[in-house]
Design a protein around this nucleic acid. Structure first.
Lengths: 188, 188
DNA sequence: AAGATAAATTTCGAAGCTAAACAGTACATG
DNA sequence: CATGTACTGTTTAGCTTCGAAATTTATCTT
């Protein structure tokens, strides 16, 4: 792929084909299971492409990915769409300081409001505004259209199997904790 | 999930279970195919977890994700592991300016060298150093161990099917260009 | 030789995050 | 009831990473 044969794959930016990439992996790293690598690489690429698509869609609505995450957490919390900053921070994996900054921006843009909890004045309540909810809804509409198109070629059976297998993989990652060496030791 | 029933799922930071999340999606957004959403959400979560794992592993080796990307591109380019900054930038989706900065750091850390191409003195050649290659190799060893563990529960047949289906999805995203509305129009 | 083109770097600034110090509130305990 | 302790959220200061635009250096064209 240096400059001799490999101008074949047409990916994002001269990115090699999946098969080309796996061949390169095998060339450079012998003890590699091509089948495993194919699954993992495909997962990774697929997700990158999906994120690019989602990013384009949310950008078209004038919100960043960071803001999208907050909107999503609030909507999924259910009516009346209120959460505390620390709960949000925990959910999104941020420090409280970073959460404060994000909320600052989103308040300034009218996506959410921030007020003190009168029953416990230490706490703060972040509440989703109608405009924020509308943006989330519109983003969801765009996303579902994209997702249906993406899965278009899969039969009902294939969808079922794919969902089941992915869920099983997810369970394995979520219910297991990697030890010092990175191995997944089962907890069940 | 506001605060009444939903303390069940034990994800990253109080993250709801996949099924809980899908139920919430359906509650807030009626025209949603739960099967599609399950696949997409599982894909997304799986990838997030994998990235966390990879991040921990590379961090243990003292390199950032950004540096990991550069090492990977150089190794996969094959011996003698040389690329120009602009080619790297295109591959990684960065501007040339950002690429210059990254290379600065990596040269300072002894992972790569940077020298002018004597045959065309406008160009620069970034070359992988043995230390960089060693880091890549060690990261690959860790990654493959993790990946084997991840796919442990899948039968040979399931691996074959999963690889095939994911490849098909990937082809659909890579060979199609979303139009203005975000739809994937097939190009084949 | 003169301009056009191209590659890489430099400069400047923006975004986003964190750590640590700080302020305000609630609660427990004597 | 008084006070210490714990907790929530914000502020401040600084760091890292990236990008846009201008700049430098070299090559190519005519």
């Amino acid at each position: 792929m240096g400059d001799t044969p490999g101008t074949s794959g047409a990916g994002l930016g001269g990115e090699p084909t999946l098969d080309e990439q796996i061949a390169a992996y095998q060339r450079e790293f012998q003890d590699l299971d091509p089948q495993v690598e194919k699954i993992v690489s495909a997962l990774s690429r697929l997700n990158r492409r999906m994120n690019v698509a989602y990013g384009r869609q949310t950008a078209a609505l004038g919100i960043s990915n960071a803001e999208w995450e907050v909107l999503k957490a609030l909507v999924l919390s259910g009516a009346p769409y209120r959460m505390g900053p620390s709960e949000l921070a925990k959910r999104l994996g941020l420090t409280p300081a970073a959460m404060t900054h994000r909320i600052d921006r989103m308040v300034a843009e009218g996506l959410v409001t921030r007020e003190r909890d009168e029953s416990n004045r230490v706490r703060v309540i972040v509440e989703l505004m109608p405009e924020g909810r509308d943006k989330w809804l519109e983003a969801m509409r765009l996303a579902t259209v994209f997702e249906e198109d993406l899965l278009q070629d899969l039969s009902a059976d294939e969808r079922t199997v794919l969902g089941e297998v992915l869920t099983r993989l997810l369970r394995r990652v979520e219910h297991a904790q990697p030890d010092a060496g990175g191995r997944l030791t089962d907890l069940d």
